[in-house]
Design a binder for these strands. Structure first.
Length: 896
RNA sequence: GCUGGAAUGGCGGAAUUGGCAGACGCAACGGACUUAAAAUCCGUUGUCCUUAUGGACGUGUGGGUUCAAGUCCCACUUCCAGUACCA
C-alpha cells in the first residue's frame, strides 16, 4: 500500500487546525437572526503538570455537541479560559522568586497549546484569564456591588444599600449607629470571624476547605487551628430560600440538586423563650419540634454561648471554666471522632419550661453548636437521639410524651418507659396543661407542631422561624496571588472602597512572597502600594492586604465570555440578554456544591440589581465521570507502581519478587505510575482517536478506567472509515459510485442518521459511535458505495473526528469546511422492514423464528405461528390457553 | 448513620423502557497474506452437558407480580460519591 493512501492523522490534523485558525471558523458574534446556544466547559486551573486525560473528556463532549449544533444552524458560543489565580504559582514564587504572573503565563500557554492539539472548536478570540487586570477589574467591581447591596427579606430580593430603610430607634442613636446598622446589612462585610488558619499554607481557609479528618483540602496537612481574625464575609445565607427555589427551575442531575439542598439545609421550627430561674433573663432556643415541649427535661447551651457566665453558679464555676477550656482546645478532629461520647457540665442554674412551669436544669455541652439556631436547645431525650444519649450519659430524666406508631411492642414499651428514643410519628400523651388552655394529647406530629406554635405565638413565648445550615461565606485569604480588595482602611477607623475609575487595583511587584506570621498576607510588605494618603483631606490610610479566594474569578467568568473585551462594563446588557443563560454546562462533580452554589449566588445578586436578566445562570448541567486507570496491589492491599508489574498469561506479577498481584482500578497518580498523558496518545494515534476513545469508553457521566488498548480499536475504526472512501493510491476509492443503495444499505444509513442524531442530543456518545461502527461494517463489505451516502456518513462522523471529517469531505469534492453544512435528516419510512423475523415462544420459551410481514396483525401472526411445524411439535398434546402477539416483535403461546 | 448513584461475559460496555440478554469495541483463539514480524482481512468466542443434532443454566442475593422481568414491586449484600451532633 502506498504512503499516500494511508490514514495519516499526523499530517491531516495540523492541516485542519491551521485552516480553522486562519479562517476563524469558530469565531462567534451576536446575531439575533439566529437561535443562540451557549455551551460551556468548566475552565481549568492551568497547573504546571499540564493536561491529563480527564480534561479532554468533558471538552470533547461539548465540542461534539457544538459542532453538531452548528450544523443544525445554531449560533454557538463556545469559549475557553483560565482560572489562573491559585496557590501553586505563589508557592513556586516563594521558592524561586519567579513572579506568579510569569509561571501562570507559561502554564496557560502550555495548556492552550495542548488543548489546540485536540481540535476543539473554541472561539479563542474570547479567551479570558482571571489574573488579567482587565478581567479582575470587573471581579473587583462585582465585589463593590455586593458591598453596596442588602437583602430585603420581605421581597426576597437584593436591593441597593441606598434603599435600606433605617429603623427610627437606630436613627435616634446618631450617625455611628446608622453606619453600624448599614454595615450589618451589606452582603459583603468586614468583621471578626472565628476562622480556620492553616499553619502550613499560612492562610485562612473556608470551613468547606477543611475536610472531615481535620486536614486542609489544599495542602493535606492537619496543621490547622481556629483563629479570631478580621475577615471579609458574604451573607450567602440570606439567599438560602432563593438558592433552594431556583433548583426547581433548572435541568440538573437530581443528585447534584439534592447535594445543594442538603448543603443549604433549610429547616423550619420555632424559637422559644425559657425564663431563667436566677433572674438572668430569658434563654432562647431553636427547635424543630416545639410539639415536644412537654417532654423537655433539661436544656443545653453551647460552650461559646454568651449567656454562659450569667448562668454559671458559684459552686459550678470551676467545673464550667474547666470544661469550656477543654472544649476550646479540642480540635475538630477530636470533636467529630469522639462524637459518640457526649460530654458536658451542669451550669448550676435552672430554667422554667413555659409550657408547664417546671424547673429544668441548664447544661453546657459541645454537642450544641454556636453557629446554628440560637446556640441553645431544649433537650427532649425521649424524642431526640442526641439528647437521649446525653441524658443516659449524665443520668437525666427521660419523659416520653408520644406513644410510638409502631407494631413492635417491645420497642413501644421501652419508649413509653423512657428506655428508648422515638423520633417518628405517633400520638401524644402527657401533653396537656388545662390552666394554659393547651392539650395536644392524641394528635399526631404534624397537628401537634402546628398547635403548639400557634399557642406559643399567642402567649408571646416564641415564634416560628426558618434556619439554614448554610453559613456566611469567608471571602478573604492571606495570599498574594489573588484579586486585591478595592478597599482602604483609614486611620480614623473608617473604610472606603476604591472608586470605579481607579479600578483595576493591580497587585504590586514584590521582592518576597512569604506571608507574615501574624496572619497578614505578603501584601503587608508592599510599602508604596500599601500606604495611601487622601488627596482631599490628607488623611492616611492603608489598603486591604487580604486578597479574594480562587472562587471569586470563577463565580462570573461565564458572563465575561459573552463580551470579553468590554472596557466600560463587565459585559454589555444587550449581549448578555442574547446569550444568557448557559444552555449546557459540563464539568466534574467535584464542583457540585461550592463553585455552583457560589456562582448561583453572585448571579442572583446581579439579577436583582438588573445587571443580568436571568435568575439562574446554568440551564442544563452535566457532570462527566472521572477517568481512572488500572493499578496493582498485593495480597495485603498495598499498591504497586505500574512499572514494577508485568503481565503473563492474563495474570500480573511483581518484576522483582515474582509475587502475583491483583489488577485494580484507581485514580491516576504519580506514585502509582499510571498517569496517562494525552500528548502521548495524540502522538501515537492522533487527536481524533483520542477524542473517539474518550467518548467510546462508556457513558459520559460514568466513572471508568482508561485502557490504552481500547484506543487501538477506535483508531482501527477511523482507518476503516478512511478506506471506505480513499483507495490505496490516495485517490477516491473506485468503489465510490452513484449506484443507488440497496434496501439494506439504505436502512443502515438511515438508522445511523437517526441514532447519531438522537444520541448526540442526549449526550450518549458511546452508543452513537457504536452505530457508526455498524455503518462502517455494513459498507466495508459492499463492492459499490454510493457517493451521497458516504458524504452523509462523513457529516455524521465529523463532530466526533473533525480532522478526518474535514479531510474526507474535501476529498469527496467539497471546497469549504463542513462546519456549517446542514445536518442530515433521516426518513422514518426507510427504517421499516417489509418482513420481520418474529420470535415465537411456547410458554415463554423460544420455539422458532418465523419470517412474516412486518405489518401483520396479531391474529394473522397467531395463525402463522400456530401453523408452524416446530411450534406444533412443542404444543402437541397440550391445549392452547392463550396467545399473545406483539406486532413486529413476538408471539407467545400459552399451552397446558 | 443519612442522602444520591451503581452492580450484566476474561475486560469496557449495549439492550426501542416489560418482548430473542450480551449490540459495538478490547482481549483471546483459529485461518489468509508475508521469508518473518507488524499492519490488514476472514472466522470463532456467556457458562456447562453433548461427536453433532440438541439441551440445561445465566444480568449482585432471596422472594414476588406477569403469558413474558436486566428492566416493575418487597427484603437484603457489596461498591462508589457526598455529608456528618444543624436541635
Amino acid at each position: 500500500m502506498s504512503e499516500q493512501g494511508q490514514y495519516n492523522p499526523a499530517s491531516i490534523e495540523p492541516k485542519w487546525q491551521a485552516y480553522w485558525e486562519e479562517n476563524e471558523t469558530f469565531k462567534t458574534e451576536m446575531d439575533k437572526s439566529k437561535e443562540k446556544l451557549y455551551v460551556l466547559d468548566m475552565f481549568p486551573y492551568p497547573s504546571g503538570a499540564g493536561l491529563h486525560v480527564g480534561h479532554p473528556e468533558g471538552y470533547t463532549a461539548t465540542d461534539i455537541f457544538c459542532r453538531y449544533k452548528r450544523m443544525q444552524g445554531y449560533n454557538v458560543l463556545h469559549p475557553m479560559g483560565w482560572d489562573a489565580f491559585g496557590l501553586p504559582a505563589e508557592q513556586y514564587a516563594i521558592k524561586t522568586g519567579t513572579h506568579p504572573a510569569i509561571t501562570t503565563q507559561k502554564n496557560c500557554d502550555n495548556f492552550r497549546k495542548q488543548i489546540k492539539n485536540l481540535g476543539l472548536s473554541y472561539d479563542w478570540s474570547r479567551e479570558i484569564n482571571t489574573t488579567d487586570p482587565k478581567y479582575f477589574k470587573w471581579t473587583q467591581w462585582i465585589f463593590k456591588q455586593l458591598f453596596n447591596t442588602w437583602f430585603d427579606a420581605d421581597q426576597q430580593k437584593g436591593r441597593p444599600i441606598s434603599e435600606l430603610p433605617i429603623p427610627a430607634e437606630i436613627e435616634a442613636q446618631g450617625q455611628d449607629a446608622i453606619n453600624g446598622y448599614i454595615a450589618s446589612r451589606r452582603l459583603a462585610y468586614y468583621d471578626n470571624a472565628k476562622v480556620w488558619w492553616c499553619n502550613h499554607c499560612k492562610t485562612v481557609c473556608a470551613n468547606e476547605e477543611i475536610l472531615n479528618d481535620g486536614s486542609h483540602e489544599k495542602c493535606g496537612t492537619k496543621d490547622v487551628e481556629r483563629r479570631d481574625l478580621k475577615q471579609w464575609q458574604l451573607r450567602i445565607p440570606e439567599y438560602g430560600q432563593r438558592l433552594l427555589d431556583g433548583l426547581d427551575t433548572v435541568n440538573w442531575p437530581e443528585g447534584i440538586k439534592e447535594m445543594q439542598r442538603n448543603w443549604i439545609g433549610k429547616s423550619t421550627g420555632a424559637e422559644v423563650d425559657f425564663e431563667l430561674e436566677n433572674g438572668a433573663g430569658n434563654l432562647r432556643v431553636y427547635t424543630t419540634r416545639p410539639d415536644t415541649l412537654f417532654g423537655a427535661t433539661y436544656m443545653v447551651v453551647a460552650p461559646e454561648h454568651e449567656i454562659v457566665t450569667a448562668i454559671t453558679s458559684a459552686d459550678q464555676k470551676e467545673a464550667v471554666e474547666d470544661y469550656i477550656e477543654k472544649a476550646a482546645l479540642k480540635s475538630d478532629l477530636e470533636r467529630t471522632e469522639l462524637a459518640k461520647d457526649k460530654t458536658g457540665v451542669f451550669s448550676g442554674s435552672y430554667a422554667i419550661n413555659p409550657i408547664n412551669g417546671e424547673k429544668i436544669p441548664v447544661w453546657i455541652a459541645d454537642y450544641v453548636l454556636t453557629g446554628y439556631g440560637t446556640g441553645a436547645i431544649m433537650a427532649v431525650p425521649a424524642h431526640d437521639t442526641r439528647d437521649f444519649e446525653f441524658a443516659k450519659e449524665f443520668d437525666l430524666p427521660v419523659i416520653c410524651i408520644m406513644e410510638p406508631a409502631t407494631d413492635d411492642d417491645a420497642l413501644k414499651e421501652a419508649v413509653l418507659a423512657g428506655n428508648a428514643c422515638w423520633t417518628e410519628d405517633g400520638a401524644y400523651i402527657r401533653s396537656e396543661n388545662e390552666a394554659q388552655g393547651l392539650n395536644i394529647n392524641g394528635l399526631d406530629k404534624k397537628q401537634g407542631v402546628e398547635t403548639v406554635i400557634n399557642w406559643l405565638v399567642e402567649k408571646g413565648l416564641g415564634e416560628s422561624t426558618v434556619n439554614f445550615k448554610l453559613r456566611d461565606w469567608l471571602f478573604s485569604r492571606q495570599r498574594y496571588w489573588g484579586e486585591p480588595f478595592p478597599v482602604i482602611h483609614w486611620e480614623d477607623g473608617s473604610m472606603t472602597l476604591v472608586e470605579d475609575e481607579d479600578l483595576p487595583l493591580e497587585l504590586p511587584k514584590l521582592e518576597a512572597y512569604e506571608p507574615g506570621d501574624g496572619g497578614e498576607s505578603p501584601l503587608g510588605n508592599a510599602g508604596d502600594w500599601l500606604e495611601v494618603t487622601c488627596p482631599k483631606t490628607g488623611m492616611k490610610g492603608r489598603r486591604e492586604t487580604n486578597t479574594m479566594p480562587q472562587w471569586a474569578g470563577s463565580c462570573w467568568y461565564y458572563l465575561r465570555y459573552m463580551d470579553p473585551h468590554n472596557e466600560n462594563a463587565p459585559f454589555d446588557k444587550e449581549v448578555a440578554d442574547y446569550w444568557m443563560p448557559v444552555d449546557l454546562y459540563v464539568g466534574g462533580a467535584e464542583h457540585a456544591v461550592l463553585h455552583l452554589l457560589y456562582s448561583r449566588f453572585w448571579h442572583k445578586v446581579l439579577f436583582d440589581l438588573g445587571i443580568v436578566s436571568t435568575d439562574e445562570p446554568f440551564q442544563q448541567l452535566f457532570n462527566q465521570g472521572m477517568i481512572l486507570a488500572f493499578a496493582y496491589e498485593d495480597e495485603v492491599g498495598s499498591k504497586i507502581p505500574a512499572d514494577e508489574v508485568e503481565e503473563r498469561d492474563g495474570k500480573f506479577f511483581r518484576i522483582d519478587t515474582d509475587e502475583e498481584v491483583n489488577k485494580i482500578v484507581a485514580k491516576m497518580s504519580k506514585t502509582l505510575k499510571n498517569v496517562v498523558n494525552p500528548d502521548d496518545i495524540v502522538n501515537d494515534f492522533g487527536a481524533d482517536s483520542l477524542r473517539l476513545y474518550e467518548m467510546f469508553m462508556g457513558p459520559l457521566d460514568a466513572v471508568k478506567p482508561w485502557n490504552t488498548d481500547g484506543v487501538h480499536g477506535v483508531h482501527r475504526f477511523l482507518q476503516r472509515s478512511w478506506r471506505l472512501i480513499i483507495g490505496d493510491d490516495g485517490e477516491l476509492a473506485p468503489s465510490i459510485s452513484d449506484e443507488p443503495l440497496t434496501k439494506e444499505q439504505r436502512m443502515v444509513l438511515h438508522q445511523t442518521i437517526k441514532k447519531v442524531t438522537t444520541d448526540v442530543e442526549s449526550l450518549d456518545f458511546n452508543t452513537a459511535i457504536s452505530q457508526m461502527m455498524v455503518f462502517v461494517n455494513e459498507f466495508s463489505k459492499a463492492k459499490s458505495r454510493n457517493r451521497e451516502a458516504m458524504q452523509t456518513y462523513v457529516q455524521l462522523l465529523a463532530p466526533f473526528a473533525p480532522h478526518l471529517g474535514e479531510e474526507l469531505w474535501q476529498r469527496l469534492g467539497n471546497e469549504d469546511t463542513l462546519t456549517f453544512i446542514p445536518w442530515p435528516k433521516w426518513n422514518e419510512d426507510y427504517l421499516k422492514l417489509d418482513e420481520a423475523e418474529i420470535m415465537v415462544q411456547v410458554n415463554g420459551k423460544p420455539a422458532n423464528k418465523i419470517m412474516m410481514s412486518a405489518a401483520a396483525k396479531p391474529d394473522e401472526m397467531e395463525t402463522i405461528a400456530l401453523a408452524d411445524d416446530k411450534v406444533q411439535t412443542k404444543i402437541d398434546g397440550k391445549q392452547v390457553r392463550k396467545v399473545i402477539a406483539v406486532p413486529g416483535r413476538l408471539v407467545n403461546i400459552v399451552a397446558k
